[in-house]
Design a protein around this nucleic acid. Structure first.
Lengths: 169, 169
DNA sequence: GTTAGTGCAAACCTTTTGCAGCTCT
DNA sequence: AGAGCTGCAAAAGGTTTGCACTAAC
């Protein structure tokens, strides 16, 4: 079981398994989701109403330092907080829709190739790798096209660009 | 010239080219570095002592929204601030040494492959992609090994691990 | 019994916002 | 002239720290 292997890894390093840490570990390991501190805090509070937000931060920092969880930004969709996930899964990229916020995970060989190339190219020892991709999911692409259309102001003698039209980048 | 093409792109969108923006644009475009807001602010202040930190933030947000600069975290080496670079260069990954903070850029085909695969796999329209890799550069690997050795406490009847020895992760 | 870990309050740092005045075009 | 931008002060996140108390081993 996921949480067990993490707990084992901690015990071996002489880290105390407090009630609070057990709760947080289980939430992170069991939930497949990408949780931020606030979500984690609220979920932990349901099981231990006395738990403090600071403990969540401290636990996450410990797990991060121990290489047991990864910290994500998800392209800062939704603010500047961080998101966390176990490191038990295979390396993957996060694909975030900038319109609906949906997050997909992508596992593909380019990721392993990238890591290997960086290691051999620089003689670098890779500890963590993080790839985040922002854009628009299939569903939101069409919705967005409509929204942009609707936003366009009623044209009256549209001033034409003096040179080439702006790249639609 | 780099700064010129960015300026052109802005003019076409009806954005005003104020003195402050010219300074900031030039700093970002001309410097190859990955600057954070504070550095940018200090450098801009040398040319215009009255410039305000808020203007730096606002300008960066505008450039970001316009797709003219990319925002990086560099694995949060050195804190939670963000770093900025022009988007004029080809897509690349950032490789950060977690010991000395040195940042290398890696341009390699896995990056393009990754992008294409994500686009075709999810029908996703990629707008930005960011890959950051943390670890230890060739130089720091040896230094780190020594540091870890030196840190090891003077062994007196070392308590042996009950199961397998801890991974040296 | 020790020492690491927790909770609480307060500090800290980065970034955003409201608003009056200034300045590009 | 007028919309867009700037500077200033103040607020708003998100995260860390100091310290006395508590609990895991």
């Amino acid at each position: 079981m996921a949480a067990d292997s993490t707990e084992g890894s901690l015990k071996q390093r002489g880290v105390r398994l407090t009630r609070q840490r057990q709760i947080l570990l289980e939430l992170i390991d069991r939930t497949g989701a990408h949780l931020d501190v606030e979500q984690l805090y609220r979920m932990a509070k349901e099981r231990d109403p006395k738990i403090n937000r600071v403990t969540v931060y401290r636990t996450l920092n410990m797990l991060k330092a121990g290489g047991l969880v990864d910290e994500l930004d998800l392209m800062h969709y939704g603010g500047d907080q961080h998101y966390y996930e176990t490191r038990l899964k295979q390396e993957h990229a996060h694909v975030i829709c900038l319109r609906c916020g949906r997050v997909e995970e992508f596992f593909g060989e380019p990721l392993q190739r990238l890591r290997k190339q960086i290691e051999s190219h620089f003689g670098f020892q890779v500890m963590v790798a993080r790839t985040e991709v922002g854009g628009y999911c299939a569903h939101c692409q069409t919705l967005r096209a409509r929204e942009i259309e609707a936003m366009r102001p009623p044209v009256k003698a549209a001033p034409r660009a003096r040179r080439a039209p702006a790249r639609t980048e």
